[in-house]
Nucleic acid binder design. Structure first.
Lengths: 247, 247
DNA sequence: CACATTGATCTGTGATCACAAGAATGCAAT
DNA sequence: ATTGCATTCTTGTGATCACAGATCAATGTG
């Protein structure tokens, strides 16, 4: 596609005025494809069990199949895509079993990250977390569903960054990525009933903030665990009807 | 290198009498390269900070750079390799900070997996775990260091499989892979003093077996936590001198 | 009309070529 | 002898071609 495309590196793809950013974040094309697909999957633009092909994605993105191959390979590696023996790839199918496994793992790991964060918390880190929560409050008052989801992610990851463990951070990141399709359903359910936002939006965020302010690691652990499991429960109750679960 | 290699799929690479296995596990070449590199890294055949190149590995393996590219990309994805901004790749450098992060994450996650395993334990699963531990005992009596390490891995992963959570299993797998270079150092230290095997070899395995026999999840959690942290302590005391730590 | 077979097509995979950006090396000038 | 510059080489990256296996549709046969 895209004309006589023997050129590489700069340009040739995103017409989306990214010239300014391209100079700073000089990523490879493969990297940008990866990020784009990653976001598309985690935001639920591809449904559960949907089949994708390398050539199809390449044409859609206006590149050769080459960068897509590598991006897709990475997505398979962190289980955002799944490779069937039939030589085809698809978005992993949702199941309540898998959802429970993800929730359980997240509660334990992110709970521990909150524990470590409380132990290592700095004033700077605390401010970043509180600011993210404030942005989330604003989004809630405006009934801005995607804004809430974004701010929620930021709030959580500021905590995980504060844990000081790159290892935990990367593990949690892959778990969130795998939870993406579920989150997308939740987001759709919330969009249908935005009046539920003030009720469930904050979760246990204020418990977390109080625990961090007091440097109480055990309390932070419990608050994070509750936040994740309660959100999962809410999803099972309200969101699952909208999902294409096959169980 | 490998003659007129326009063929693909079968053959052309491993002469290592894997014909029988090749029929069963008909993996792609890229998959086999990935597995081979993965094993090489986790067994410490590549030192900390060592630089690798796609073309270099390809020539060494007797393939074109193509499958190596994708295998290396996957290894970067699960952090078995690290990509420098200089456009070069290397085995991640060891640091005691990173080692502590890995140990901490492993203790928590694998402790929880043991917890879930105790809750879901079947007689079949228990037998598999006990058998692996018996094989480890045999290797210890024979002062077979690599045999001990292999059996230890098998013992641990039988437990994680028994947890019933594919999510936990895959997370733990990547953590072990990242711990590979450290483990290799430990292995080398043990080879130097094999008389230490009976002392440290079993760790808390019998505590784990007792906990699983009693379906005592809390005890299993604690035993696994102790097993991992004690092994890490032993490594810091005895193995670290042999490692090329830069901290 | 139901079912098996065959042909076309699509898909992932491997090899090869082309290119740009670093890194390394050699040479020359002070 | 050291420093500055230019050339060469190496490396990852992207595009393109070739190929094998699977899928699917159309067709022919009972």
């Amino acid at each position: 596609m895209a004309g006589a495309a023997t050129r590489q590196g700069e340009g040739e793809v995103g017409d989306l005025g990214a010239a300014r950013l391209a100079r700073l974040g000089n990523d490879s094309l493969q990297e940008r494809v990866y990020q784009e697909l990653r976001r598309a999957i985690s935001s639920g633009r591809y449904g559960s069990g949907e089949v994708v092909t390398i050539r199809g994605l390449a044409e859609m993105l206006g590149t050769s199949p080459m960068p897509v191959r590598e991006a897709v390979r990475r997505l398979v590696q962190d289980r955002s895509l799944e490779m069937l023996p039939n030589r085809s790839m698809r978005v992993p199918v949702m199941s309540s079993d898998r959802f429970m496994q993800l929730t359980d793992a997240r509660a334990v790991i992110e709970g521990h990250a909150a524990f470590r964060a409380a132990q290592a918390m700095t004033d700077r880190g605390f401010d970043a977390i509180r600011d993210a929560n404030d942005r989330m409050g604003l989004a809630i008052r405006q009934l801005d569903v995607t804004g809430v989801v974004d701010a929620n992610r930021e709030f959580h990851f500021e905590i995980y960054k504060a844990s000081g463990s790159e290892v935990l951070l990367s593990v949690i990141d892959t778990l969130w990525q795998q939870s993406g399709p579920y989150l997308a359903v939740l987001l759709r359910a919330l969009s249908a009933t935005p009046e539920a936002l003030p009720t469930v939006g904050f979760g246990h965020h204020f418990d977390l903030l109080a625990a961090f302010a007091a440097r109480d690691a055990a309390a932070a652990h419990k608050a994070m665990d509750d936040d994740i499991r309660d959100a999962a429960d809410w999803y099972v109750k309200h969101g699952r009807a909208a999902a294409g679960h096959n169980d």
